[in-house]
């Protein structure tokens, strides 16, 4: 029983993305479980222990300890909750608002003029600066941070969706839908949006990953989650002055942050392929 070389190759090709996606889903599931149960099981990890300052990883403290003797492992696990919440909520908010605005701007010229000028204005301000300004106006808290991270992301997503829709609306099947009497809302919801969803799902993963990073950056800069609520950002921030002495403080949450972002991106790619029947067919054959 020998397989032809092309068959073997095809099998390998189809197996590989499967493995990467499985690993990503596994990593994502672990992080989400951490986010849900971590703080319940392990607490917030705020207990100070001056005797345990800056200890390297050991059986006692798996990821080592920070400058205040707090267990980095416990703080990383607990921090997942904030990061995941911020990432997912931001992705949902940005996709709903930015996606809708983008689709409308791509299809209706007059909406385009208004929305794109507003987007230009917002995009002229650096995202992190805008987020800092919003946090200082609205006050601290998780909801504020989600709003602050969403606002700079919305114009980017709106612009992307607009350009996708602009190219879709010129395709002959849209003309065909008009000529068989489909209404504009039907064309938008049944033809335009489904054909843009691949792009949208990739963008969703990007926004989710970027939001987790932004939250980390805000916390790192001291305007995100307060220091007593651990998040990956403020754990990394707490380690920045001791990087040469105790690199584990930054390394472990940093690596987990990277794995999380990478996993989300891999899942995003897979989603795009799934949503596109042409790509799915190519894979199957």
């Amino acid at each position: 029983m020998t397989m032809s070389p092309s068959k073997t190759f095809a099998a390998m090709r189809s197996a590989r993305p499967g493995l990467a996606v499985s690993l990503s889903l596994f990593a994502l599931a672990v992080v989400i479980l951490m986010a849900i149960f971590g703080p319940i099981v392990l607490g917030s990890g705020n207990g100070l222990n001056p005797l345990m300052r800056l200890k390297p990883p050991s059986a006692l403290a798996w990821f080592g300890t920070d400058n205040l003797g707090r267990d980095v492992f416990v703080r990383t696990i607990s921090g997942a909750r904030n990061s995941v919440m911020v990432g997912l909520s931001t992705a949902v908010v940005v996709l709903l608002i930015g996606g809708t605005l983008g689709v409308l701007a791509g299809y209706f010229k007059w909406v385009d003029r208004v929305v794109m000028r507003l987007a230009d204005g917002l995009m002229a301000i650096p995202g992190i600066l805008l987020a800092i300004a919003l946090v200082s106006v609205l006050g601290g808290g998780l909801v504020t941070i989600i709003i602050a991270i969403s606002v700079p992301e919305i114009p980017r997503t709106a612009r992307l969706m607009r350009s996708v829709v602009l190219s879709i609306r010129e395709l002959p099947f849209i003309t065909a839908a008009v000529s068989v009497g489909s209404s504009t809302p039907k064309i938008l919801l049944r033809h335009v949006v489904p054909n843009a969803i691949g792009m949208l799902s990739v963008q969703a993963t990007y926004v989710c990953a970027a939001a987790i990073l932004s939250e980390a950056a805000l916390s790192f800069l001291g305007v995100g989650t307060p220091p007593d609520v651990p998040s990956w950002g403020n754990v990394i921030a707490s380690g920045k002055e001791y990087f040469r002495l105790a690199p584990w403080i930054i390394a472990f949450p940093g690596v987990i942050l990277s794995i999380m972002v990478l996993s989300i991106n891999i899942i995003g790619d897979r989603l795009r392929d799934r949503f596109d029947p042409r790509l799915a067919a190519r894979k199957a054959s």
Partner: peptide, 22 residues
């Protein structure tokens, strides 16, 4: 116009592009 469209229909040049792939 909607009801007028019913009596005039179109066949397009590129059948691949004029059918929604989804």
């Amino acid at each position: 116009l909607h009801s007028a469209r019913r009596s005039v229909q179109m066949i397009f040049q590129d059948p691949s592009a004029s059918l929604d792939p989804r």
